[in-house]
Amino acid sequence: MGNGIEIEKPLTAWAEAHFGAGSRLEGLKRLSGGASQETWAFDVAAPDITHVLILRRAPGGVAAARSSEAVSLATEAALLGATSRAGVRVPEVLHVSAPGTPLGEAFVMRRVAGETLGRKILRDDEYKTARTRLTRDCGEALAGIHAIPTAGLVDLPRSLGEDQITKYEAIYRGFGMPRPVLELAFAWLKANAPAPAAPVLVHGDFRLGNLIVDGNGLAAVLDWELAHIGDPREDIAWVCVNSWRFGHSEKRVGGFGDLPEMLDAYAAAGGARFTPAEIDWWEILGSLKWGVMCMIMYSAYKTGADPSVERAAIGRRVSENEIDLINLFEGLGRHA
């Protein structure tokens, strides 16, 4: 964990140039979470007003070779700009810093007030009104994201459902740990693949945890690292995966909403008209992917790359995804 000394000077210099001489940096603090990028919270006390900000930065300011999936910080900043102009609620980007500068590869955005913790959003009275609006808000936000013209978006990987099956099956086979439920899911997905929809900009990790929610509903969509060109149904299904319902399984959309309501809001906001049954295949793919991702995290322990008890224990979460897959298989045909 960095102590912030190396970024204090370049951040102060930027703040003075952007907000005027005499602007002071206050409360610089590294936030937890986000292993692949540094995330810092800080304030700038400008002569007239205090600005509440976030710095996203490559570790040490230098972009490491990262997983082929994650987009660069510059692309993430460009996506925030494009989605904001399209009317999707995202944090406003104020500055993009290039590799090789004193600050390094990074960008600064405004910090949006609200909550990201799924359990609190689903439980606390403070979000009671928000919970009644969140389903529509999510449908509208996804319709907005999926409508953004992809021609101007540089550097985005393309990954359709079929590509993801190929990718995650190769990873699963590489572990040499056969699990019949996952095997059945791979075989079923291949045998029942839907016709691809027209490719769109897909957020790639749209779920509670990556959404800022305030008292009025959805305040901002965060974490664009996994954005790609893909199938719109991937995003719609990912927020439905039971792992992100935080115990509130009866509400298919994130533990807070019903899928028909989100699909209606999605279509009313200009998105394609999908039925709940069309989302089943993608939710099965989502649960399968998260199961394989838990195996990936456990393998970091097994190979010695990360000896923490947390990485070891996460291997005992794969069975959560297996029961979700079984519940989904049993429910097939139940959705109109």
């Binding site: 069975s319 029961i323 519940n327």
Partner: peptide, 23 residues
């Protein structure tokens, strides 16, 4: 069979998981 096996596995791994109640 897979359901019985997974229920037993979850009873060890994560007995409080919501999906186990749904199953």
């Amino acid at each position: 069979h897979l359901k019985s096996t997974t229920i037993a596995q979850l009873s060890v791994d994560q007995p409080g998981y919501s999906g186990l109640r749904s199953a």
